[in-house]
């Protein structure tokens, strides 16, 4: 069985192509202002990557905040379900997963089959989503991909008072004016964000092997801070973590098609 999973997110639209439980193609396209176009572009590129034609797909699962724009999907998959299915697929034995998206963070507790047992969501506030770190990278005038590694070089933990992304921007500017080293500011940013994500995860219970997906998982500064906040030695990050939910949608589509 060949299925596609499409995750139309606030920032990027990701597509995964799976054949009998193995990923054979993937592609991402910026969502921009036209979700339908983004979905088309992402799916076309993923099919190209898998060297397949559209007709060879048995089913298409659609998920994410823009799921209603995925006209190609014959199966709509709830985003919580996608995350659970994906986390269980990548890490046997894991029971807790968090998907940190650009505008929304979801924490999910699931059983060994990837069925959802519990979940908590943070949305409609940038403080608890990837948008927070992005806004801070602009305030700090440091590239997003450099911000995390920079935080790792800091040995000093300074608290951030502002919780709101807008107020935190001003606080960061204030810290720059006070000649606080950028690395320490960067750590403070990641610590603050990780504290909020950790509190969301704690609401569903922290089991060993917490799976973290979403683009923010690439950020080593965030991951280190999250481990400190959760008091764990490691977290599980799938290869290409931004495709987490898309993978889950492809898996659920295959289960439905069976």
């Amino acid at each position: 069985m060949i299925t596609a999973g499409i995750d139309c997110g606030a920032k990027n639209t990701k597509t995964i192509i799976m054949k009998d439980g193995t990923i054979i193609g993937r592609a991402s396209a910026p969502t921009g202002f036209d979700q339908r176009e983004a979905v088309k572009a992402s799916l076309t590129a993923a099919l190209e990557d898998a060297k397949l034609d559209r007709e060879q797909l048995d089913h298409i699962g659609g998920t994410g905040s823009g799921a209603m724009s995925i006209e190609e999907a014959d199966i709509k998959v709830n985003d919580i379900k996608s995350i659970a299915a994906s986390a269980a697929y990548f890490f046997r034995g894991a029971h807790t997963a968090a998907d940190v998206g650009a505008e929304k963070t979801r924490a999910v507790k699931f059983d060994e089959n990837g069925s959802v047992e519990d979940f908590a969501v943070n949305e409609k506030c940038a403080a608890g989503a990837g948008a927070f770190i992005e806004a801070m990278s602009r305030a700090l005038e440091t590239k997003l991909e450099e911000l995390g590694p920079l935080a790792l070089t800091s040995e000093k933990s300074i608290p951030m008072n502002a919780q709101c992304a807008i107020f935190a921007e001003s606080e960061v500017v204030g810290l720059i004016h006070a000649r606080t080293p950028k690395k320490d500011i960067s750590r403070a940013i990641h610590d603050a964000m990780a504290g909020r994500i950790a509190s969301l995860i704690r609401r569903i219970g922290v089991n060993p092997d917490v799976v973290i997906m979403g683009g923010v998982a690439y950020n080593p500064g965030f991951i280190e801070a999250l481990k400190r906040e959760l008091h764990v030695d490691r977290v599980c990050i799938p290869e290409k973590p931004e495709f987490g939910a898309a993978t889950g949608a492809a898996i659920v589509a295959a289960q439905h098609g069976r």
Binding site: A107, E117, D118, F119, A120, N161, A162, Q163, G195, R196, S199, L200, R202, R203, I204, G205
Partner: peptide, 15 residues
């Protein structure tokens, strides 16, 4: 004041 959603979270499990 500005963190009670997080700090009270432990008494408010999602389930």
């Amino acid at each position: 004041h500005n963190k009670i959603k997080d700090d009270c979270g432990r008494c408010k499990p999602a389930s």
